[in-house]
Design a protein around this nucleic acid. Structure first.
Lengths: 250, 250
DNA sequence: CGGCACATTAAGTATATACATATTACCCAG
DNA sequence: CTGGGTAATATGTATATACTTAATGTGCCG
């Protein structure tokens, strides 16, 4: 431990390039360096911090990846104009969500059907050829109350193992996570009035406001599954957060 | 242009460390390297790619930041267990949203009031001391139709300039973007049935399902503004995407 | 046989160096 | 004054090197 480290205090045990990131981020967030402002050149910062250009470069590259600055050769680095607000939406599994509320979770399959893909199915899964699909509908309970109604389509061409699975006891969401570890997903979130089917499934009056989350999961370009989750509207909310520094960590 | 570059084809003009990121990402996404799998050591990868350890390190650091792998000294790097799905929700300004639909955008202020913060206001903005706030309600049109109803609170302690602004012609959202360039935000998304006020503002029958987005924007710990946007439910949907590679880019 | 010092290993950080690339600025010829 | 070629410049990428740090394993000695 050198003397300078002891003096530094709080910021100790942070790498230099991370400290540079933090300080620049602070200046941008505080408005000291407003959008459009040109930050010092790498060599200038290197001199200020008494380090090499490579170290500064590492910091600047990180800031550029998180979208706080834009870098132009020969011109320098500039604070970016805030465009669209983007926020990170954490979509946890329903079981965790329910247990997070302190309720006991229960799963109940309502129906399961295997069939040749209809034109509706093909639209939802972006299928060109006519393959087979499995459709599962299920209920997720929080305590005695229905929490969420699930309607799911699984593309059998992508997940042939789904033909053997009844989903009587396992929720298709967590089952699929075992089969297909990582994927890209596309979500649509909307509010709808409950139709008669949904109303009876959720035991609410027809016409009630419900939050609907539709997710389409793909892997390497082909769609695996499409799911529509219908929540009892007033009792459920999604939370999304935006913090510039963690952008990296989606 | 060397011969090898010409042969490479599609992947040309990608930096080596980015190519390494892509290939490893592919193996993880395809399931070839399942969660928990230990990837080759930096030195092994360096040899495979015929490059230095630094280059591999850059790639691995990026994968670690995006949350695809976890790195442990002396042990190696491991594919991470899939936790919660997180998706990036792009929340653009309403004007852009409307124009993206090919409709003409129009803004109309409904009311504006400056007052000492009530206890409700203080709860929404996390105010401890009793300061002043401005409350603005406004309508956003898409063509002839109301698209969205806005109810906004602005913390005057954080943005004193708001006292002088009437918001008769400028939407508070875009105005605030000028004043407070960068910030963190927290969103809640839910479905509600329109009460009488909302119903008359949006000219829909009371009880209709509406999508509500509530956003609380903070800077350096203090809350700037709270806004509730009420959309005509069935006509509007939010879209969120998850792609592992871009996690960095919020 | 148990515990602790020490060596080993893999990643983390930082540096100097080198060359590539994109873009701007400048200067000179027409 | 204008256009185009060229030099200067800031970032981008890659390398070899060196030292640090944390975790794991090993072996020695009481």
């Amino acid at each position: 431990m050198t003397v300078s480290q002891t003096i530094a205090g709080a910021n100790t045990e942070l790498s230099l390039h991370q400290r540079i990131v933090n300080e620049i981020e602070g200046r941008i967030l505080s408005g000291e360096w407003p959008p459009g402002h040109r930050l010092p050149f790498e060599l200038e910062l290197a001199e200020q911090y008494g380090c090499s250009r490579m170290t500064v470069n590492k910091a600047m590259a990180q800031l550029a990846r998180t979208g706080l600055i834009e870098r132009r050769k020969k011109s320098g680095s500039f604070v970016i104009q805030p465009h669209a607000q983007s926020a990170v939406l954490e979509i946890s599994e329903i079981k965790q969500e329910v247990e997070g509320l302190g309720k006991t979770y229960r799963y109940k399959r309502a129906s399961r059907e295997m069939r040749k893909a209809t034109s509706d199915d093909r639209a939802l899964l972006d299928l060109s050829a006519s393959g087979k699909v499995v459709e599962v509908t299920a209920l997720h309970y929080a305590g005695e109350r229905v929490f969420c109604f699930e309607e799911r389509l699984i593309n059998l061409a992508a997940v042939p193992e789904a033909a053997e699975e009844t989903f009587a006891d396992t929720a298709p969401g967590s089952w699929l996570l075992q089969q297909v570890p990582w994927s890209a997903a596309e979500h649509k979130i909307k509010a709808v009035a409950a139709d008669d089917d949904i109303a009876s499934a959720l035991s609410i009056p027809p016409g009630s406001a419900c939050l609907v989350v539709e997710r389409r999961t793909s892997m390497q370009g082909t769609f695996i599954t499409h799911v529509r989750l219908t929540y009892l509207g007033s009792s459920h909310e999604l939370v999304a957060r935006f913090t510039p520094s963690q952008t990296g960590q989606i």
